[in-house]
Design a protein around this nucleic acid. Structure first.
Length: 290
DNA sequence: AAACTTGGCAACCGCCGGGAT
DNA sequence: GATCCCGGCGGTTGCCAAGTT
């Protein structure tokens, strides 16, 4: 037996909602505390719409807890990270962003983030770097860093330094060899940024991070996470200016930090001995042992 | 100023999964 | 187990405003 249409379409209104319709719907739902099946809503609320349309209008536009306006940069980056993990499961992604709807996120992805990622040389579908012709040079990491830093390309770091950084339990992903040690955020993030465990942060060595205009608050977040038992299972260093998501309810929480936040910070690495300390260095996007 | 193009967003459509019968 | 119903999801469309020629 074929499926019935969700509603009898004859005589039902389609297209943009009017203020009056919105008002009727909101009043009905609020007066019923949402305790009604959507199919019955149009009749009871006096609307010439199908129930589905009412539900959509409510969830995507009329719900009082919705945030309006563009996604913030931190929200955007969270979407990117979640998309890398979940794919096009917009509702799951939306569930991680309070006040945002799946439709909103989907639209934002298609209109903004896709372009942004492509511009950064990242395939928005796979979150892998878009392969480029030069075979002897792994462009994505360095190139991304350069782009994101918006500065002149730093000198190619010598292999020795990178080798060192590899030993720091952080991931620089050079030469496409070692996979990220922490796999909380596969694909996009872990490919592009080094990751470190919270306990490895020993101290912001200087109020350097305070110089970061918009993300200075994150320095205290990180500092706190280092001095006490952190609520984050890993710390993800990203290159965006605003990447502070200190209170998201992750299954495996991740603290996002802007690059500016961690410049010059010291980290313990490995066994925590004196030789295993490192400092984060913007110039070559690495952890330098000292 | 008008025509055309592009981008963004709200809404629709069809399918799917889960619960009820 | 089969069928029905409903809510939810993701892809797509269509409209409109802004920008460009």
């Amino acid at each position: 037996m074929g499926r019935k249409p969700c509603c009898d379409k004859v005589g039902l209104k389609k297209g943009p909602w009017t203020e009056e319709e919105d008002k009727k719907l909101v009043e009905f739902i609020l007066s019923n505390n949402g305790h009604c099946c959507w199919r019955a809503v149009p009749k009871l609320a006096g609307l010439l719409r199908c129930g589905k349309s009412c539900r959509l209008r409510w969830t995507n536009y009329l719900r009082p807890d919705l945030k309006r306006g563009l996604l913030s940069e931190s929200e955007e980056n969270l979407v990117i990270d979640l998309h890398a993990q979940l794919g096009n499961r917009w509702s799951k992604i939306a569930a991680r962003l309070p006040g945002r709807t799946d439709n909103e996120i989907k639209n934002h992805w298609n209109t903004h983030i896709k372009k942004k990622l492509k511009k950064m040389g990242i395939d928005p579908v796979t979150h892998e770097p878009i392969s480029s012709p030069p075979p002897d040079h792994e462009p994505h990491h360095d190139q991304l860093v350069h782009d994101q830093l918006q500065g002149p390309p730093p000198e190619e770091p010598n292999g020795e330094t990178l080798e060192k950084s590899t030993t720091t339990n952080t991931t620089t992903n050079h030469e496409g060899t070692d996979p990220p040690l922490n796999t909380n955020s596969p694909a996009f993030n872990t490919d592009e940024v080094p990751m470190i465990q919270p306990h490895e942060i020993i101290a912001p060595s200087a109020p350097h991070a305070a110089a970061a205009s918009s993300s200075s608050s994150s320095s205290s977040s990180c500092s706190n996470s280092s001095s006490s038992s952190s609520s984050f299972s890993s710390v993800l260093f990203a290159s965006f200016d605003e990447m502070v998501v200190p209170s998201m309810e992750w299954a495996e929480p991740v603290l996002f930090l802007g690059l500016d936040d961690v410049l010059g910070w010291e980290f313990s690495c490995g066994d925590g001995g004196e030789d295993s300390r490192a400092v984060f260095d913007q110039e070559v996007w690495k952890m330098e042992l000292f």
